[in-house]
Nucleic acid binder design. Structure first.
Lengths: 232, 232
DNA sequence: TTTCCAATTTGACATTTATCAATTCGCCGG
DNA sequence: CCGGCGAATTGATAAATGTCAAATTGGAAA
């Protein structure tokens, strides 16, 4: 493993405060892989052998049922997935695949659990991470149950804008069909939602987004920290 | 607080293994309240002053946005809510109200956090609880995104049956309008879904459910542990 | 028991979302 | 520069879900 990878992981909230020996122990069993795009990383139902740490690139976490498929979330660097399964020694609830060329560190779940059992700082960091994950999915569920698809798109755009400097123009950052799945709609429906937002202060050309009337968009989106603020 | 309450709490997975002194410390600051039905317990957005432990009765956790409301989950005894907010010292993401006459123990969040900081066994129990909560909401989100409302109802019935002895007849255990909100549909839509299930091995009269053809219902519901098994 | 009130059900209809097929668009490789 | 191919868009239609109003039901209180 590169020293820079090691440093990036070390600085993650999850690993930041832990004992050096324990960190070393985790890193000893770890290995790094470079994946091309569209590679299957995990399959839901399989045992969670490794805690994945995404160093760069991006990965999609999705789920299937009865011939249908939906995207649950998109992982961006630097972050881990899926911690809950690793800690509980439970099967994955989601499948995963790379979207772009991605660099991923694999930490054997057994090592993670062993260190978790011994290192109290790490155990508490795991709590923070899980609490945040929990609140994240909960917000997602609220988003799904309380909003229509156009409203979800509108809020997604506002949030994405805020996370990318807040300027009026930015990139969509995701293929449209995957964004559609992420937002819980079909690609056709996303196309129509995009057109519907033209009357509400948004222009989207290809992957380029322009918020032409922020106030107007907010009037439609009605964002609230209790759904849309990732730090809340 | 009654000694029996104390014992019930002590036997919860969250508190089972912790140091007695720390448990005592939690209990010293705790107080018990008996609430009538339909009492507001928490309001989303408020600071999470107390960890709630439901001793008996039942409570609904719900969320509002833009004039709409939906039920996120229904708490049954003996269980805690909402741990993540308490640990993170973050605002509640859901509101709560009693459904029945309920007995609830309130643990000051500050005490919980203080003990969490000191007691390593407790800290690890918190991890288990949070991991389970996380996986629970995640399954909920999969349920919402992958299934139609009739399919959600069918799977709800199968699960409820399994959790109540597995016999062919059982009680619904929830007002229909709340069940509707819990499953992400309107009461009218639930009524129609119930009728739709008559052709698939289910008879519902008032609050009485009878599974007349389990195999047929499963053919429609297609349950999977990765969504429907609460212990998975 | 009777009355009353709220929950539920039903019907008619509107809206939202999905599906399917047919273009169109945009990009990559030759 | 030109094909070719997958993604995206569009149109037509169907299915799912929500809304509103009007019965109907069932249970609690007088």
């Amino acid at each position: 493993m590169r020293e820079t990878d090691r440093q990036e992981i070390r600085h993650l909230p999850l690993f930041r405060g832990m004992d050096s020996n324990n960190f070393d122990r985790l890193m000893r069993g770890a290995y790094v892989q470079n994946f091309p795009p569209q590679v299957d990383l995990l399959r839901e139902g399989d045992p969670s052998d490794f805690l994945h740490v995404l160093i760069n690139g991006s990965a999609e976490l999705f789920a299937n049922w009865n011939g249908r498929e939906t995207t649950m979330s998109v992982a961006r660097p630097v972050s881990t997935f899926i911690l809950a399964a690793t800690i509980q020694d439970a099967p994955w609830l989601m499948s995963g695949r790379t979207l772009e060329k991605s660099r991923i560190v694999l930490l054997p779940s057994e090592d993670v659990r062993a260190v978790f059992a011994e290192d109290n700082v790490f155990a508490r960091a795991v709590v923070s991470e899980l609490a945040q994950c929990y609140r994240g999915v909960l917000k997602d569920a609220k988003n799904l149950k309380l909003r229509t698809s156009v409203e979800r798109l509108a809020n997604y755009l506002l949030r994405w804008q805020a996370e990318h400097g807040g300027g009026p123009t930015f990139q969509l950052g995701l293929e449209k069909r995957r964004l559609a799945a992420r937002l819980g709609m079909t690609p056709e429906n996303l196309s129509r939602s995009i057109r519907a937002l033209q009357d509400h202060g948004v222009q989207i050309n290809g992957t380029q987004v322009e918020i032409t009337d922020h106030a107007k968009l907010e009037t439609l989106a009605v964002p609230t920290p209790l759904i849309d603020d990732p730090r809340c």
